[in-house]
Design a protein around this nucleic acid. Structure first.
Lengths: 353, 353
DNA sequence: TTGTATGCGTTATCAG
DNA sequence: CTGATAACGCATACAA
């Protein structure tokens, strides 16, 4: 029970074995007799031996750590979406014996930090968050030879890298068409920042949905901002006071969608009855009842749904795989579910002019 | 520009200096001539030299890393509060040259993980999240001799450790008294899980506020659960359909408070006019407008406010200080602000029986 | 002011 | 199957 720092040397001395044998026994090498292995493992357990991570990193060149570089002072990252993704990724790392390293840095320092992580061999790979249209981090990481997986996609047609993305385009197209089928024609899009790659794709899907039904997209119904609650609120206030308010809105996240609901409530406008709302639902944990992994049976929002937490898990798996057997860069495109809740309904008579 | 892995050895060879001198120059030792130092720094920069973190950790015994162990599958951690705290702490670490290590593990593994981090010397210290009534992690970490700071407090009167907490008791007492001064008597408390230390203190404050004004706390107005949106919604539905609905509610977080608003809206009950709401506001970034560090001028919720992000920053500072000059365990108790928004008002005539 | 020699705790190579 | 022995890359006590 001595909590003294027992290292490989002292442990092997107490066992009357060489460090080599002890190390091999512990790391599951085949050439150790079962009897010695048992003895070693038992002793390691009894003396509470844990290999020093810095020593083994130094010896192996592997850090058994994955890095996440998150930009400081930008709301779109330090937000609930990020937390849920991290939770999912973290689960995977833990069960595979990896650690998660997070650096919160200003955008201007990003490149330096990636270089640092790579040359310091601080991490074995990184996850890239919130890719831009053509994100410079992708060629950078490739040149650094640091394994990585992108959560989302970037527009490099000629370039192969590993990514995991939701089919934002098809999801938003389907949602738009669903609204049109309900009789809506004036449909607003409350989108994320269009510097983000995913936001562009969502807009494309929305526009494709409209034009496929012969409706011309209009600038006055399209908004693009950080996906925070007050954004949804403010845009909705403006929209509802405009000459031709929309009868339906498509919102890029539940967060601004809550702002939409608040703005409507203040005006006595009933979601689903007077104005329809479809939100992109990342299955953020704090919005769902705490006693179930699954979302509730009868959700409030009609939503395009895809769990960002599961995405975190999967992205982490893909990265670990890439780290442990380099070469194959796999990518995955997930289709989101369209889940009918209480915030959509046929265009109300009141709303039609 | 060669991206080859240049280490101390090759760097010193190219400079015609010993590793010692180069190391000293880079680490700011005083006994190096300014001229050599300049030369060394310039070369290090040119060759893109970064010391291997595992090597220096091994040599110094310091990891320059802070650990955060977060329990898996519990909503109160994998949530926006956590994300904001992490953001704040991460800023501090980065500017001080520290890394943040996160392990997401099941509750049952926590002790093992803390022991691991300590004996592996993986981290120089840890931040303890969400302390319980008497949290076993505190004596554990003390016995492991691992520096730590608790975000919140635990009930160990005889025990000195470092913590940073908001004065939850006084905040909830003030809020309660404020509501009573507005004429409210039936005031509900929608609290967090009372296994959490902070939730207990909040309830105490609430009860103290009531009794100080001669009102007896009643069980039927007190709720305790994970602070998620649907919780606020469901409790409010039940409350509003009960025999004597409250005329005011005190909510432990903005998240369930949004659920409260949703439930009221469905019933055509106007916040601030028909029913007053005060929420504890952690200044979660996604609830505030994205273009300002400060919360909006005219907030929606009347709230007890204390930025959890600032708490993260400060807690990290305290921990680093403790790591770099051990001994003094400092603690801080912050008073929260009471900010008047639009969700409070005098008890309405309609609501009085 | 600079250099030499040694240690940090592992893993890996090569003999036996 | 087991054991010396040499890296891994840096920091530091001690010498010069």
């Amino acid at each position: 029970m001595s909590d003294e720092s027992v290292n490989l040397k002292t442990l092997s001395e107490r066992l009357g074995l060489s460090q080599t044998t002890v190390s091999r026994a512990l790391n599951g090498f085949p050439e150790v007799s079962e009897q010695t292995r048992r003895r070693v493992i038992e002793a390691a357990d009894r003396f509470n031996y844990r290999p020093s991570s810095s020593a083994s990193s130094l010896a192996t060149g592997k850090a058994r750590t994955v890095g996440h570089v998150v930009p400081l002072a930008e709301h779109h990252m330090i937000n609930p979406h990020f937390a849920d993704f991290i939770a999912g990724a973290g689960e995977t790392y833990s069960t595979h014996g990896y650690d998660m390293l997070i650096r919160v840095v200003p955008r201007a320092d990003e490149e330096r930090v990636y270089r640092e992580l790579a040359t310091q061999k601080r991490v074995d790979g990184v996850v890239v968050h919130g890719p831009l249209g053509r994100d410079p981090r992708i060629p950078l990481l490739q040149s650094l030879q640091l394994p990585f997986v992108v959560h989302g996609r970037s527009d490099y047609a000629d370039n192969e890298y590993s990514w995991l993305d939701v089919n934002n385009r098809s999801a938003f197209r389907r949602a738009t068409e669903f609204l049109i089928d309900l009789g809506h024609e004036r449909i607003a899009l409350i989108n994320g920042l269009e510097t983000m790659n995913f936001a562009k794709r969502r807009r494309k899907g929305y526009e494709a949905g409209l034009t496929s039904r012969g409706i011309e997209p209009e600038q006055r119904y399209i908004f693009s901002q950080d996906m925070v609650e007050p954004y949804g609120y403010e845009v909705t206030c403006r929209l509802m006071e405009s000459a031709a308010p929309p009868t339906a809105v498509l919102v890029s996240s539940i967060l601004p969608a809550m702002g939409v609901v608040r703005a409507l409530a203040e005006r006595g406008i009933r979601p689903g009855t007077d104005v329809s709302i479809i939100a992109f639902d990342d299955c953020l944990s704090f919005l769902h009842a705490s006693d179930s992994e699954r979302p509730k049976d009868v959700p409030y929002f009609t939503a395009i749904r895809s769990s960002i937490r599961l995405a975190g898990r999967r992205a982490a798996q893909m990265l670990l795989q890439q780290i442990e057997q380099p070469g194959a860069t796999r990518s995955e495109l997930w289709e989101a579910d369209l889940v009918i809740g209480q915030t959509t309904g046929p265009k109300s008579q009141a709303a039609s002019q």
